[in-house]
Simulated assay, not measured.
Amino acid sequence: MQISVSSTLTVYHDGQFWVGLAEHVEGGRYGAARIVFGAEPSDEGILRFVVGKWERLAFFGGEPAEASKPAKSPKRRAREAAKTLKQPAMGTRAQHALASQRETMKRESAHARSRRRAEEAEARFEQRKLKRKQRHRGH
């Protein structure tokens, strides 16, 4: 049995930091990892990273990635890499907790806002009803 393995590292500037996108195709499974370098890395720094830390990258996140078809063409690999970059980067447990708390607060405030608008509309309707009644009575 023969397993084909292919890995690429693309280093680019995302507007704020220098970021590396490591792509790895092994036995039909595609995985990607995002590495933030910060300042512009030198060629030696990139080489040290590849030699020292490449094997510790979690390409597949501990769970099997899409194992249906391997990335065949460079264009397809580029599309998959762009898709991976659009997904939010993995954060710490605290960041995930804060994000979920923000989402909960957003839902609660939207619910309160809609309830307040409904109550104001009801109050305006009651006011109009009262005025109509007073006009009808001739006051």
Rank of each mutant, 00 (worst) to 15 (best):
V25R: 00
A89R: 03
T104F: 13
A65D: 03
G138I: 07
R102D: 13
R48K: 12
P88S: 02
S114Y: 03
G52S: 11
V51T: 14
R76P: 00
R93I: 10
A112D: 11
E80G: 00
L57I: 01
I3G: 02
Y12A: 08
F60W: 05
D14I: 09
T8N: 11
R135H: 08
H139A: 13
G15K: 06
Q95E: 07
G27M: 02
W54H: 10
K106P: 00
K129M: 13
G61K: 06
A81T: 00
S100N: 14
F37H: 08
R128L: 15
A67Y: 12
G52F: 09
H13S: 08
E66S: 13
A39Y: 12
G15Y: 07
E44S: 14
H111T: 08
A58E: 12
S73I: 00
A78E: 06
R115S: 08
T10R: 15
R135G: 04
L85C: 01
L85V: 08
G91N: 00
K53A: 15
R102L: 15
G31H: 02
W54N: 05
E80K: 07
A78V: 02
D14E: 08
G138A: 02
A89V: 01
F60T: 02
G28Y: 03
F60C: 02
G31T: 01
A118F: 00
